[in-house]
Design a protein around this nucleic acid. Sequence first.
DNA 1: ACAATTATGTGGTTAAAACCACAAAATAGA
DNA 2: TCTATTTTGTGGTTTTAACCACATAATTGT
Lengths: 221, 221
Amino acid sequence: MNYKWIARTALFRGCTEQDIESICRCLDFGTRSYRRGDVIALSGDTVSDIGLVLSGSVRIENNDIWGNKSILGIVESGGVFAEAYACIPNEPLMVDVIANQDCEILFVNVPKLFQPCDNSCSCHNKLIQNLVIVSARKNLHLTQRIFHTSSKTIRGRLLSYFSQQAAIQGSSKIKIPFDRQQLADYLNVDRSALSKELGKMKKEGLLNYHKNVFELNIHNQ
Amino acid sequence: MNYKWIARTALFRGCTEQDIESICRCLDFGTRSYRRGDVIALSGDTVSDIGLVLSGSVRIENNDIWGNKSILGIVESGGVFAEAYACIPNEPLMVDVIANQDCEILFVNVPKLFQPCDNSCSCHNKLIQNLVIVSARKNLHLTQRIFHTSSKTIRGRLLSYFSQQAAIQGSSKIKIPFDRQQLADYLNVDRSALSKELGKMKKEGLLNYHKNVFELNIHNQ
DNA sequence: ACAATTATGTGGTTAAAACCACAAAATAGA
DNA sequence: TCTATTTTGTGGTTTTAACCACATAATTGT
């Protein structure tokens, strides 16, 4: 395991490689690999582990009783998932976690983390403090996702999402982690209607795109 | 200040009254009162305090550049707000916090909380651990709110919200903290369209209501 | 108790997106 | 390379909710 890389993730930041190695052994954290499309966890499951994405990416989604799919977000490598459920004992998942690409996950057991361990690994408290920040950031992501779906028009939702991505990626040329169907499921709109609106916006000169790379034309208000 | 009551909030649970009294003095936590409608914090502000609602309630909302209002949630007494922003230094608020009723707020300074204090108040670590759980719960609330707005129809959104409330309140007769306009802003729909849909559902025998009290008729499928 | 203000319901119109079907393009697998 | 599969775009139709205007009901403040 690449402890040096793990030490740079938001969850383990501030821990030394030695700390991480010892805490992983001490608290018996394990890794597991998944193939693209594999189910990592299902709605209704109860979990007590945080998933740290070591490589690849996972997708958080929900299928309601009418079969409508809603994508809540993508967790890229270095990010975590299920931390909210892992921190609340016996809280059943409201979402499915799917391997968005082939990926490897490190599972961090929260109950063990919350108990002081025998060897009193030095970065225990640091880890908990990091967990607060990681959870806070996840909060902000969910809030953003709420904003992206609060416009009543498809165009408004696209502009909300694209302009945030442009800000994050520091460029008006952005690459998104979704195909059309997934983007539609993220913005909670119909795929074909989304395709039409994108075509209209391209015709109006608002943006250009090829596959999942979009270039925004800032000027054409 | 009623330390006994504070000791029962999710944030201070597990701390003794003495602990709370000493930590409030030691870390210089302060309270402030607001009148219904007062602005407690505005989008763009940076905060470093968690707001703990001692009495009354606050409303978390957002006004986008086109003037559309979106309500993210209500925080009742005992609950906290702005904790995500307070935990991430210099992160500007994306939302407004408004006094939903006359209310009193205790402000808990997070940077001070994260530094070990001179007197090493005993419940420091407990408080941080509670903060993890409180933040996790807030995550789940935001996820719920996402589900309530993911249906494409107004009826679907209402049923999603009402059935969750029925589960929480343990009854098919539920009281909601919103007037019609606020419910519309919470579900991201037009108020008059919401009113019509409610009328239609009442006519179909799905539910009954008076003001902000709704009674769901479970049977009529 | 009254006036002023705010909240709610309702009709009518319009705009928008959902929905369906299908063709074309791109991709993956053998 | 060829075929099968998946993804994307597009036309046409229908449903739905946004939007506007206004009447009525409820609430607030004096």
